[in-house]
């Protein structure tokens, strides 16, 4: 009965999903299915290997976020203010207890350029137990932001700690290997913090992600050997809040790089808390 109910609920929500919400850009990210002959000087590239766990039919995939530029944030805030000012009379009218929501609490459908994206594990350079993926994307600083099931939305954020790295234009940045799976029970995918508690699967998912940074032994496709390639330099990111995520977790500890002290992310190279 519960499954039927959930199925119908899914259907109802699916029917109500605005088409406009599904037509956004992909944050300027293009998965490359073949090695490029040359690298564009105005684009950055990410090389990674990913695990291939699924939940039922749906792949469990990584979500990344490019830290927006000051200009992008300014444009977002201006659009939000415009929408808020327009909605304010209605918000004031609806405020039951006289408390009108502030602009920071105001949600609106922003039509600006995306800065978050799902790493599509079905679009790869090389297949295998771990799939090798090459992405062409805007240069910038990226965060391993979370995990999703399927291709959209953010099911679990790495809100309790993660890492960021820079991707320079004209260079392939190798970020190593990424792993993800459901982690309420033991997972066959290595490196994850798993077996968190079977009851966490009731009425929700808890997904986990792990990173193994590249080292000289990490395999690189032969077709990329002639191209400029450098390992990512990671920085530790401390706790953050993502009110749009269904669940929270943290990137699994990384020996020599990412640790946790009383739950707070710590850069193991410096002993300093994540920023």
């Amino acid at each position: 009965m519960k499954k039927i109910a959930l199925g119908l609920l899914v259907l109802s929500i699916a029917l109500a999903t605005p088409i406009a919400a599904l037509a956004k850009d992909n944050a300027g990210v293009t998965p490359l299915l073949a090695a490029p002959a040359a690298l564009r000087s105005d684009a950055a590239y990410l090389l990674l290997r990913t695990s291939r766990a699924k939940s039922g039919l749906f792949p469990i995939q990584h979500v990344m976020l490019r830290i927006p530029t000051a200009q992008e944030l300014e444009a977002y805030r201006a659009a939000r203010k415009l929408a808020y000012d327009k909605a304010l009379p209605e918000l004031t009218k609806k405020a039951k207890d006289g408390k009108v929501p502030g602009i920071d609490d105001f949600e609106f459908d922003y039509a600006g350029k995306a800065n978050s994206f799902v790493v599509d594990s079905g679009k790869f350079l090389e297949d295998g137990e771990m799939r090798t993926i090459l992405l062409e994307l805007p240069a910038g600083d990226y965060i391993l932001y979370g995990i999703t099931v399927g291709g959209r939305g953010l099911v679990t954020c790495n809100c309790l700690g993660t890492v960021r790295f820079g991707a320079r234009a004209g260079v392939i940045t190798d970020i190593g290997s990424l792993f993800a799976d459901k982690v309420h029970k033991p997972s066959p995918i290595p490196h994850l913090e798993d077996n968190l508690g079977p009851s966490m699967f009731q009425y929700g998912f808890v997904l986990g992600q792990a990173l193994v940074p590249p080292d000289p032994a990490t395999p690189v496709p032969a077709a990329l050997h002639a191209l400029a390639l450098e390992p990512a330099r990671f920085e530790v990111v401390g706790e953050y809040y993502e009110p749009g995520a269904g669940g929270i977790n943290r990137l699994a500890p990384i020996p020599g790089l990412l640790g946790y002290d009383h739950g707070h992310a710590v850069d193991l190279r410096t002993g300093k808390p994540g920023e």
Binding site: V29, S116, T148, R152, G153, A245
Partner: peptide
């Protein structure tokens, strides 16, 4: 819900 792809004001 956070739409991904989408803009997240980090």
């Amino acid at each position: 819900p956070a739409q991904v792809p989408g803009f997240i004001p980090w």
